[in-house]
Computed example of a mutant assay.
Amino acid sequence: MRLTALRTFIAAAAMGLSLLTAPIAAQADDNPSAVIDQIRSSGVLKVPVMTGEEPGYIKDPKTGEWSGFYYEFLGEIATQLGVKLEPVETTWGNLAADFQSNKIDIAIGVNPNPKRGLVVDYLWEPLFTDAWAVLTPPGKPVKTWAELNDPSKTVVVQKGSTMQIVAEALLPKATITPVEDRGLALMELQSGRADGVVFAVFDALQITNQKIGDVSLPEPILRNPATLAVARKPGNAGYINFLTNWIQQERSLGLAQGKLARAWEARGIDLTILPAGFSF
């Protein structure tokens, strides 16, 4: 009888404990500020940084310190949250995995992607908008995407990026060659192994300073929203609300546009290729 009574007591205690902890767990899941609280508690905002992605990300080869307009934007967000930036070196194609492994707290300048959308929440308000362009060999610009949609053409993209999705959708007849990063893509073009490399137009324009090729903005022009993304997890509603308000302020007051214009001007980027009335 004593053994039975002890078992009954243990079972009752376990049930009581579960009833006590269940509301706590539910409360954590229902707390819209849980993610913000976690970031503030850690003291850092973990952000992705990428080599070869100037002027958005610029790494000082002597000090290893990061700058660039994306890094500046992220620094403003960190300041608002009262934390410091913690750079995590990665690539565009690895962002979803970085979110899943909790390596980063935010991504900036990303494009909505259905596959990544399974694990990532995108903010619907873009920080700015550019368009998809093609960097071609010198003297070989293209007016339309159709000119590259040919079995004899090879188009290079960064692996796992939105650029790859664009190329595969518009150029099904061409040979699409995915590579790991921008540097390798440019090597393919310079070596004569590529007829074009797909880039966001602002990235392509700053590359032209290197005299590697010509920038084309093929028709139909495809606008490219550059937005923010966070990991899909309980308690990120307040984080998303905070970031959405930050973006709306940046855009409505001209802060984002001014920062971008200064960054591109500082690197001698000529924006005259953009059609009249193109607003970023």
Rank of each mutant, 00 (worst) to 15 (best):
T4R: 13
A5L: 15
I10N: 10
A11H: 05
A11L: 15
A12N: 08
T21R: 10
I24D: 05
A26H: 11
P32A: 09
P32F: 07
S33K: 09
A34Q: 14
D37A: 15
S42M: 05
G43T: 12
K46C: 06
P48F: 02
V49P: 01
G52R: 06
E54S: 15
E54R: 13
K59V: 12
G64R: 02
W66L: 01
A78S: 13
A78K: 09
L81R: 08
V83R: 04
V83D: 00
K84W: 02
K84L: 06
E89D: 08
N94I: 08
A96F: 00
A97N: 10
S101N: 15
K103E: 10
I106P: 07
A107K: 06
N111F: 04
P114L: 01
R116W: 03
G117M: 01
W124R: 14
W124Y: 07
T129L: 05
A131P: 07
A131M: 04
A131V: 03
A131R: 02
A133T: 06
L135R: 04
P137Q: 09
K140T: 04
K143P: 01
K143V: 00
W145Q: 00
L148V: 08
D150L: 07
P151F: 08
P151H: 09
K153Q: 07
T154K: 12
V155G: 01
V157A: 01
Q158M: 12
M163E: 14
M163S: 15
Q164H: 01
V166D: 00
E168G: 02
A169G: 04
K173R: 14
T175V: 11
P178L: 00
V179Y: 00
D181C: 02
E188D: 06
L189V: 07
D195H: 14
V198Y: 00
V198C: 00
F199N: 06
F202W: 08
D203E: 15
L205M: 14
L205T: 05
I207P: 12
T208P: 15
N209I: 11
Q210D: 15
K211G: 05
S216I: 08
E219P: 03
P220Y: 01
P220M: 02
P220E: 03
N224Y: 10
T227D: 03
N236R: 14
A237T: 09
G238H: 10
N241D: 14
Q249S: 11
S252T: 11
L253N: 14
Q257R: 12
K259S: 13
K259V: 11
L260M: 15
W264R: 12
G268P: 14
D270Y: 09
L271R: 10
A276E: 15
A276P: 13
F278P: 07
S279A: 14
